[in-house]
């Protein structure tokens, strides 16, 4: 170590007047923002251990019951074809969310983001007469002739059909209900309790091992992402040239994955050092009480009634 460079021994603060007056919004690049928002979304969606501590209705239930509710619920949702019944289920799930004292706005914001990715975007083609022929609801393109393309028949006009809207909406609402129920269970149960409950329900050990390690990996990944974004934020105030900016983004991807792998590797070694041999011990488990059994029975009765009525009377 040698002398301190002379420029450091001059205190020359930057004043607000010195920086060019620019009231425009400061923004990180699109990729940086996307990376950061995705990290935040994943961490707030997956890691909600604090909401599992609220004094709500679902938080009082045994994790085994909640896991059974999830299994029965998602199966029931898939079997109910009536849009009206699906809407009633949405309302019941909404009541459960409210009684579990979760913040409705942020909960449904997350659910709807996932519905957009897993429900709306994949079902978009169903709206059109190419996939679902039927009565036109909105005509988009009209060409002179129809033709065959590969396995598809392209009709002479492209429109959104009433039948398409019905099918797509039915699928989307199923996705909405399944996701809302899944997130409700995740947000009201500690992850470790979900794993314990799954083990009690005789889920394969390899499956539990994979989800436990994946959960750990996602946690480390989002933490590294968050730290690295704060580091960037602390030192970035002006747009730099495109080439350097691209290099930084690329390098950050590399660093984030590298650090995640490194920390994950250390975590895994620590597990081995503490005697981990491929099986996960789940410790003590809570016993089912009367409230648990009553709640589960009520849930199964409501859902099976809805499935039966919907299928017997062929309600769509």
């Amino acid at each position: 170590m040698t002398e301190i460079p002379s420029f450091l021994l001059i205190n020359n603060p930057v004043t607000l007047h010195e920086v060019k007056k620019n009231d425009k919004k400061f923004r990180f690049s699109f990729i940086e923002q996307t990376l950061n928002s995705s990290g935040k979304f994943i961490s707030t969606t997956v890691f909600q251990y604090h909401s599992a501590l609220f004094k709500g209705i679902l938080q009082q239930l045994n994790p085994v019951v909640k896991l059974l509710m999830l299994l029965v619920g998602t199966t029931g949702i898939a079997l109910i074809h009536s849009v009206l019944f699906q809407l009633i289920l949405s309302f019941l799930i909404f009541l459960l969310v409210a009684f579990s004292k979760l913040r409705l706005r942020s909960f449904y914001k997350r659910v709807l983001t996932l519905v957009l990715i897993f429900g709306i975007i994949p079902t978009l083609p169903i709206y059109f007469n190419w996939i679902t022929p039927g009565k036109p609801a909105l005509e988009l393109i009209k060409s002179g002739c129809s033709f065959n393309f590969w396995i598809y028949h392209v009709p002479n006009s492209l429109y959104i059909s009433y039948e398409g809207i019905h099918h797509a909406l039915r699928l989307e609402i199923k996705v909405l209900n399944s996701l809302a129920l899944s997130l409700l269970i995740i947000h009201t149960t500690q992850f470790v309790d979900i794993v314990k409950a799954a083990s009690r329900l005789k889920a394969p050990a390899i499956f539990l091992l994979i989800i436990t390690l994946s959960h750990k990996l996602i946690f480390i990944f989002t933490k590294v992402l968050e730290d690295s974004f704060l580091g960037l934020k602390s030192r970035w105030w002006r747009k730099i040239d495109e080439n350097a900016s691209r290099q930084i983004v690329g390098n950050r991807f590399l660093l984030v994955f590298n650090k995640t792998w490194h920390r994950y590797d250390q975590t895994y070694k620590a597990m081995i050092a503490r005697g981990f041999n491929g099986t996960i011990e789940h410790g003590y488990q809570k016993q089912l009480n009367r409230l648990d059994i009553l709640f589960l029975l009520l849930f199964i009765v409501v859902l099976s009634t809805a499935v039966t009525i919907s299928n017997v009377f062929q309600l769509y």
Partner: peptide, 15 residues
């Protein structure tokens, strides 16, 4: 979120 203020603050405060 304002560019000028961000530039002023980040140049003055190192972390």
């Amino acid at each position: 979120n304002k560019k000028d203020f961000n530039a002023y603050f980040r140049q003055n405060v190192g972390y």
